[in-house]
């Protein structure tokens, strides 16, 4: 099962990036994709068995992306206004944020989301505690409110 999924994903990429549909290129693709799948299938999918949970999770993740894009645009306008203002009203500091997320995938998703949203950057994770560099007090308080963490927790069914 794992082999089939990895092979299909690799082969789709082969077709996309070669862009040719004659027999020679397609058969070359089959051979090289099979070789790569045989050698490195357990690099791509780490978990032992696949459950139907993954499909539900990916659907909810797709619903999460538009909200994230909106936050990213807000964040960029925030940074742009800071850059363009002459007095540079920033007050950076490092804060700690205790999280309740458990699985690796949700931790990574949340860390990347923090980095992309207004004025905050993840620096480190130690024992479920994020070290976050915040540009000002206001954005730190926004993060502490924990709206985004709830959304990520909702995606990966953790509560």
């Amino acid at each position: 099962m794992k082999y089939v999924i990895v092979f299909l994903v690799l082969y789709l990429h082969w077709i996309l990036w070669s862009g040719k549909f004659d027999v020679f290129h397609l058969s070359l693709g089959v051979i090289s994709c099979a070789l790569v799948t045989f050698m490195s299938h357990n690099l791509y999918i780490q978990s032992e068995k696949l459950s139907p949970r993954i499909i539900k999770e990916s659907f909810r993740f797709i619903k999460y992306v538009p909200w994230l894009l909106y936050q990213i645009i807000l964040s960029n306008i925030h940074v742009a206004s800071l850059v363009l203002s002459p007095g540079m009203p920033i007050d950076p500091k490092i804060i700690r944020y205790k999280t309740k997320l458990k699985s690796e995938l949700s931790l990574v998703t949340f860390a990347n989301s923090i980095t992309l949203t207004p004025g905050t950057i993840t620096a480190d994770i130690v024992d479920g505690e994020y070290y976050v560099h915040a540009l000002s007090k206001k954005v730190a308080d926004d993060l502490m409110a924990g709206e985004m963490e709830d959304k990520v927790a909702q995606i990966f069914e953790e509560d």
């Binding site: 964040s75 940074v79 540079m88 920033i90 950057i121 560099h133």
Partner: peptide, 21 residues
């Protein structure tokens, strides 16, 4: 932002977000 901000953490805010979007 990369040119104006005072230290490298804050430059990171400008470069990491602005370039992505």
């Amino acid at each position: 932002g990369l040119l104006r901000f005072p230290d490298f953490y804050t430059r990171m805010h400008a470069a990491g977000k602005g370039d992505t979007l």
